[in-house]
Write a protein that binds this DNA or RNA. Structure first.
Lengths: 115, 115
DNA sequence: GGGATCGTCAACCGGTTGGTTGAATATGCG
DNA sequence: CGCATATTCAACCAACCGGTTGACGATCCC
């Protein structure tokens, strides 16, 4: 609370700078997930994933709703809008190049065996 | 050199996560600049700006060409393409909303700048 | 109640980041 | 040459990051 509140783009870009967090976002593109299920494909502790999810939530990229004892994670793609707009200012980047996206998606998803 | 070479998106997003570096990119949108001139509007040492420029260059977001004793910094907006494509995969974000960009530009430029 | 599951908290650790200073290296110029 | 300008290098520092482990509070279910 005492910190001078960083620019929203700071937290969004910082959240996106980690491959684990980008992979999580990609997974959530499919469907909402519980924390434990998010953690499953990764070779790291549940606590680590919990922290990553907190970072994503702080950036507004996901929301977490606790239902019963399981906490559901939901993608909030609108949080990317400001960042996307900022980048668009530097040029028009193939607004809808889904082929390229599929390639990135494939290269970013955890391989289940190892990340 | 021993590090396992991070994903390109890691370095690009990490570079964008700092407001000083985003401001530098915005300045370079206007024109190529020398390191000293880049540093001028900021309230920090030249060495600090030099480091920021190294981060941007490492991410491929700028190139630096030394001509005489002055090193010119040039924006390389193509480096944003992969990041932009990645984000577009989460939704179409107003591909060309330049009004919004102008607002962000105004809010991101260093205060005393008349660049 | 009691045990298993879900998730976070707290403390710790090594590595990185963003900044500082002061010295060093080029280069241009009178 | 000798000095000013342009930029980086090196060492240092506090703060942050990404990860671990172990203990803990909730919640479900028998």
């Amino acid at each position: 609370m005492t910190s001078p509140a960083p620019h929203p783009l700071d937290t969004v870009f910082a959240a996106l700078a980690d491959p684990t967090r980008r992979a999580i976002l990609t997974m959530l593109l499919e469907d909402d997930m519980a924390v434990t299920d998010v953690a499953h494909p990764f070779a790291m502790s549940l606590a680590a994933i919990s922290k990553h999810l907190a970072v994503l939530a702080d950036a507004g990229l996901i929301t977490q709703e606790k239902r019963g004892r399981v906490k559901w994670c939901k993608l909030e793609p609108d949080a990317l809008r400001a960042a996307s707009v900022w980048m668009q200012g530097f040029g028009q980047f193939d607004p809808v190049d889904l082929d390229a996206f599929e390639r990135f998606l494939a290269s970013e998803l955890p391989e289940d065996s190892e990340i």
